[in-house]
């Protein structure tokens, strides 16, 4: 006897309005807290600079103008060039380099989180769902990594592999996986015993489906909080590594590398070379931190002890 599939009842309407309600609640909470709104605006600005850098930057960030070396901010150059934030030791426009620098910071920050998050989530799901020796191996590996200042490993790998955006993303990404794995594992452990997971199992769903379709969607919320703080710390690490000369190739402008260059002019009191890139880093990182703080309070105040 053939069993006819029962047509699914259309339930579209409810989750949609539910989602809209959540969104409205989020917006209200954000407006109430005020600072997250400012943080979001700052990040939108940084993202705008990162995406449209080539179109909005006044000059080519690598164009050298030896006649205009170390020009003060608000200096007028030749051929209608105007140096709002001054020029560096090679006569390159600081504002243009700053706008281009947003690219690397955001790109590295977000991609490293995606790399680390993916590894961590998969590792955490496997460890939490299967338990046993899989759990042991994964979590002990994590312990070893955490028992060691990661920046040192990053330095060593980058010295050997050489500079490059891809290398720095992978190295910083791998540095982040343990945090995600730990949280995902803890959540998976408790979800594994929930009725709806058991129901999925009883219905004969494959393990793969259970892990990725039933469990994973329910642990996304705390991950977004961690990710937000993580982007902030990855951007700081990237700046440190670029400052050490380990970031991207020298012809790519980054905030960290601009600060490294500024050291040569420190005694000459060319303050704008160090001041503006630093402010760019601080504002970006601060915004991610503020958003993370708000997101944590909004999603689950109990998470407060975790981050």
């Amino acid at each position: 006897m053939a069993i006819e599939a029962i047509p699914a009842t259309p339930v579209q309407a409810r989750p949609l309005s539910h989602r809209r309600r959540e969104l409205r609640r989020a917006m209200r909470s954000m407006l109430q807290a005020k600072w997250p709104v400012v943080a979001l605006l700052v990040l939108l600005l940084v993202a705008f600079a990162a995406i449209f850098g080539p179109w909005i930057s006044p000059l080519d960030p690598n164009r050298q103008d030896i006649m205009m070396r170390l020009a003060d901010p608000l200096t007028e150059g030749r051929r209608n060039a105007f140096f709002l934030l001054g020029t560096d030791g090679l006569g390159r426009d600081v504002l243009s380099r700053l706008l281009y620098g947003a690219r690397i910071s955001l790109l590295v920050g977000i991609c490293a989180i995606l790399v680390g998050g993916t590894i961590g989530v998969i590792a955490g799901l496997l460890a939490g769902y299967f338990g046993g020796w899989i759990d042991d191996v994964i979590m002990r590996l994590g312990d070893i990594q955490l028992a060691f200042p990661f920046i040192l490993l990053a330095i060593m790998f980058l010295v050997i592999l050489g500079p490059g955006v891809m290398n720095i993303i992978i190295v910083l990404g791998v540095g982040q996986w343990v945090t995600y794995a730990r949280i995902v594992r803890a959540q998976t452990l408790s979800l594994r015993e929930k009725e709806y997971v058991e129901a999925a199992r009883a219905l004969g769903d494959s393990t793969f489906l259970i892990i990725f379709r039933t469990i994973l969607p329910n642990i996304i919320a705390p991950l977004t909080v961690i990710a937000s703080f993580n982007v902030a710390s990855v951007i700081l690490s990237e700046a440190s590594l670029s400052f050490l000369g380990l970031g991207v190739p020298p012809n790519v402008p980054t905030w960290g590398a601009m600060l490294a260059d500024s050291r040569d002019q420190l005694m000459a009191n060319k303050w704008w070379l160090a001041f503006f890139p630093g402010i760019a880093i601080v504002l970006t990182v601060l915004s991610f931190n503020i958003l993370g703080d708000w997101l944590r309070d909004f999603l689950d105040p109990r998470l407060k002890t975790m981050a």
Partner: peptide, 9 residues
């Protein structure tokens, strides 16, 4: 949110 080396500078 402040990079230590920038604070130093």
């Amino acid at each position: 949110s402040i990079p230590s080396f920038w604070l130093g500078i």
